[in-house]
């Protein structure tokens, strides 16, 4: 089904989903921690918007609730908690640049194509308008993981993790019209608890090793190595 045949609301869903993907790239390459948190908040807001529009376009009232929940949790509460955390950890001005941003970005582009390739058979089988978004959401998940691989700063890793969750949620909304309400509430609760746990952990890590650079955790391995950079 080509884009030109879709009603305007459904086109809007695609546009929003594409911007969610773009924000994943922004998260990946953003050097300033505070800006990355803002990008994450925007991503959450956009996922909520996608949910809202899908609800409006597909007449699925239970999605309105999901949208509200996502907005409250992903766009407001968690970013606010992260903000507070960075302030408590005195990381407001923290910047961190990737080793080779171009290569990482290219890897992310490759992941986008890869996820498209993965979901192609599914796209051909299904015929709902949101089907193409599955590729986008899978890419968001993979890029979140990529971000966790390449970022050394713990808060940035949490952002990667949370954006993976955004991707999963997007997939759920677009492929099946959202998860059952119970599951959704559970997941939301899990994410919240994870966030609280992360916060506690950070304070602890910070106290014990005086840094939030996860590469410093390499010291904790069993066999001693010559340099700290070698992971196990």
């Amino acid at each position: 089904m080509s884009l030109t045949l879709l009603p305007l609301l459904q086109q809007l869903v695609l546009v929003l989903a594409a911007i969610v993907l773009f924000l994943s790239f922004v998260l990946l390459a953003q050097t300033r921690l505070i800006s990355a948190i803002h990008a994450f908040a925007w991503q959450g807001g956009l996922v909520a918007a996608v949910t809202l529009v899908v609800a409006a376009a597909g007449q699925m009232p239970h999605l309105y609730f999901s949208a509200a929940l996502t907005l409250a949790l992903k766009a407001l509460l968690i970013p606010w908690m992260l903000h507070r955390l960075t302030r408590r950890l005195k990381l407001e001005r923290h910047t961190e640049s990737l080793q080779s941003p171009t290569l990482v970005t290219m890897a992310a582009v490759a992941l986008v194509i890869f996820s498209y390739w993965l979901v192609l058979p599914m796209i051909q089988a299904e015929l709902t308008f949101t089907r193409n978004i599955v590729a986008v959401s899978l890419a968001v998940v993979l890029i979140g993981l990529l971000m966790m691989v390449f970022r050394t700063q713990a808060v940035a890793q949490v952002l990667g993790f949370m954006s993976m969750e955004n991707g999963l949620f997007l997939a759920a909304v677009s492929a099946t019209g959202g998860m059952p309400l119970v599951v959704e509430l559970g997941v939301a609760f899990d994410v919240l608890v994870a966030m609280v746990l992360f916060g506690v952990f950070f304070l602890q890590i910070r106290e014990s090793i005086d840094s939030l650079d996860v590469d410093r955790l390499n010291r904790l391995r069993e066999t001693p190595g010559e340099t700290g950079a070698e992971g196990q």
């Binding site: 582009v109 194509i113 498209y116 390739w117 192609l120 796209i123």
Partner: peptide, 10 residues
């Protein structure tokens, strides 16, 4: 093929 379609522009 969708993959080829996205590969060639790159």
């Amino acid at each position: 093929s969708g993959v080829l379609r996205s590969l060639v522009p790159i």
